[in-house]
């Protein structure tokens, strides 16, 4: 019997993460619920005027998406660290880079993708023009991928600490800022009737860079956390 191929192993890891999430569906629903609740905060804070809401909608939606991604990234490795699964993953013969990529990919599917797909609903509640919806979904798909990958670095570095929750935001929020800039700019451009292509292209480039580099840092962070 020989070792499974790398893609097969990674797919298996993704499937395991998805199965774990599906068996505890609140884990998928909580970020979406958080998104919905914070959306409701903005009209309460800014006033219900549809025009002013529409002018803030792009930025608001993106900031909420960023925050809900941030809140979930603390949990990416925590369960597996606590029960010893992470040690076993580090000792597996497969390169950690790809295992980490599978982990973060699963996190992206569970939080970023589901959030991006449901975001048009909330966009309508905030009066975002209809023509900006495709740009919103596309920018959230790409941007949440970058955020999951970068968030993985923070999660890996803080997973061994008892109180990692607040710290991880301090570590990775500055790294989220470029994503926020281009993500909200894409939506705003589309809302004003301009093409959102350039901003989306830059988000795509960030996504590629993050896929190449973030798992390296995450793997290094996990080794440090397991060692500490």
């Amino acid at each position: 019997m020989s070792a499974p191929s790398l893609p097969a192993f990674c797919l298996r890891l993704v499937r395991r993460q998805l199965v774990l999430a599906v068996r505890r569906p609140v884990e998928i629903l909580n970020p979406l619920l958080f998104f919905a609740m914070v959306v409701a905060l903005f009209p309460l804070g800014l006033g219900p005027d549809p025009k002013s809401l529409a002018s803030f909608a792009a930025g608001t939606l993106w900031i909420i998406a960023l925050l809900s991604n941030l809140l979930t990234s603390d949990t990416i490795f925590r369960g597996d660290y606590d029960d010893g699964s992470l040690e076993q993953l580090l000792l597996a013969p497969q390169p950690l880079y790809f295992s980490v990529l599978a982990y973060l990919g699963a996190h992206w599917l569970l939080t970023g993708v589901s959030l991006a797909l449901i975001s048009p609903l909330f966009a309508l509640m905030l009066n975002l023009p209809l023509e900006a919806l495709p740009a919103l979904v596309a920018s959230l798909l790409l941007g949440s991928g970058v955020m999951s990958l970068v968030g993985g670095v923070g999660a890996a570095l803080t997973v061994g600490l008892k109180r990692g929750g607040m710290l991880i935001s301090l570590l990775i929020l500055p790294l989220y800022m470029p994503v926020l800039i281009f993500g909200s700019a894409a939506v705003r451009a589309a809302a004003q009737g301009f093409p959102a292509g350039p901003q989306l292209a830059i988000l795509g480039a960030m996504f590629c860079l993050a896929i190449a580099l973030a798992p390296l840092a995450t793997a290094a962070g996990l080794r440090i956390s397991i060692d500490a």
């Binding site: 970068v150 670095v153 570095l157 570590l171 973030a214 840092a217 962070g221 440090i224 956390s225 500490a228």
Partner: peptide, 8 residues
């Protein structure tokens, strides 16, 4: 850990 973070 700080070394990794500063490289990132």
């Amino acid at each position: 850990a700080c070394a990794v973070l500063s490289l990132v």
